[in-house]
Computed example of a mutant assay.
Amino acid sequence: MAGQTYVVTVATLYRRPVFLDDEAARAVCRVHTARWPWRDARLLAWVLMPAHWQGLVTLGERDTLSTLIGRFKALTSRAVEDRHRINGWLWGRGFGDRALGADEDVVGVARHLVGHPLRAGLVRSLGDYAYWNAAWLPGDAAPD
């Protein structure tokens, strides 16, 4: 539904920790910097963990959530080297999603999402983890 914000989770095929490889992680991260994959949706925050990606996305008028995430998965799959795919597949089937309620704090949800590397023990400081971003950071548009 247009205007609805979702937390979306996409896991790698067989939950393989593909993104422990910096080259693969950087390839997926480059897709985030292009505007056209998201069309009129807003990517408010995202984090790339070793075996999954999570994003906070507000849908626009032009795509369903399934279409948007399908496009993201296709583009990121093509972005990584063949050695990271199994029979051409990087991501597992489908995705998980949760619609935010009207009373939920979007910035609070985003902060929780990008804090996953800290809670997983991957880094001691979020500044030490390169594979995340949020719309309220300097240089980005603040979330509505």
Rank of each mutant, 00 (worst) to 15 (best):
L48V: 08
H112E: 14
V18T: 15
R124K: 15
G108P: 07
T76Y: 02
L122C: 13
R78M: 08
L137H: 12
P17V: 13
T5P: 01
V28S: 08
R98H: 15
R85F: 10
L100S: 08
G3M: 14
V109T: 08
L122M: 14
G127C: 01
R16W: 06
T5A: 05
L100W: 07
A34H: 15
P117A: 12
L65P: 03
V31P: 01
R15H: 12
Y131T: 06
V57A: 03
L90T: 09
R71E: 04
F19N: 02
F72Q: 02
R98M: 06
L56S: 01
H116P: 00
H116T: 06
W46N: 02
G96P: 01
N87C: 08
A142C: 05
L68A: 07
L68G: 01
A110Y: 00
D63N: 05
A74K: 03
P37G: 02
L48S: 07
G94W: 07
R93A: 12
N133R: 11
T5F: 04
R119S: 12
G101T: 09
D63H: 06
V80A: 06
V114I: 15
L56Q: 01
R93M: 09
G139D: 11
V109N: 04
P143M: 01
F72P: 00
A74L: 05
M49K: 11
Y6D: 01
R62T: 14
H112K: 11
A102W: 08
G60V: 03
R85I: 04
A27L: 00
R42M: 04
P117I: 11
G115I: 13
R119A: 15
L20V: 14
L56D: 00
A142F: 08
D22H: 14
A34N: 09
L68W: 01
H32L: 11
W91Q: 02
Q54I: 03
L13F: 13
H84I: 02
V7F: 08
W136M: 05
V7Y: 02
Y14N: 15
A74D: 04
D128P: 10
D21L: 07
L126R: 09
L122S: 09
Q4K: 10
F19Q: 07
A135F: 00
D22W: 10
G139C: 09
E61R: 14
G3Q: 09
D97E: 15
